[in-house]
């Protein structure tokens, strides 16, 4: 389950990202846009794997979503993706897997909203 304490979007990650990649806001924006375009693809993969009850097929999209979310500061989405990846690696999917997939989908809506706000504000700076 997502860690309720963690923020939807850890802006410190984005600030550090900007500082360590040459202080180029355009680069960070591009990266975030790549991320925003990629999440639905990975979420689709997760949902398809769970619908097919295919643990093996769950690993890769969950793994990708976990690390790309962490890279841009979407820590709660990264955490729930990690839980899904572990479930996939365990080889069998129990009842928690569909719940976590739903949680990821819900978290994605929060993430998208948070990034829209960030893009309108800090991201333009």
């Amino acid at each position: 389950m997502p860690d309720a304490e963690a923020p939807v979007l850890d802006e410190a990650v984005l600030i550090e990202l900007k500082e360590t990649t040459g202080d180029d806001p355009a680069f960070v924006r591009d990266l975030v846009e790549t991320y925003l375009a990629d999440v639905p693809i990975q979420l689709g993969g997760i949902e398809a794997a769970i619908a097919a009850n295919d643990a093996e097929a769950l690993i890769r999209p969950a793994h990708t979503l976990k690390s790309s979310s962490a890279a841009v500061g979407a820590m709660r989405l990264s955490d729930v993706s990690r839980t899904l990846e572990m479930a996939g690696r365990s080889g069998t999917l129990d009842a928690s897997a569909p719940d976590n997939a739903k949680a990821a989908r819900a978290e994605w809506q929060s993430v998208e909203a948070a990034f829209s706000a960030w893009m309108a504000g800090e991201g333009r700076a």
Binding site: L17, T20, T21, G22, F27, D30, L31, T34, Y35, A37, D38, R60, T64, S67, S68, A71, V72
Partner: peptide
């Protein structure tokens, strides 16, 4: 890397080096 986000970020970091 199959993740476009990771790839883009890593490419950028390597170019910075």
């Amino acid at each position: 890397d199959d993740s476009s986000v990771n790839r883009q970020l890593l490419v950028r970091r390597l170019e910075k080096l």
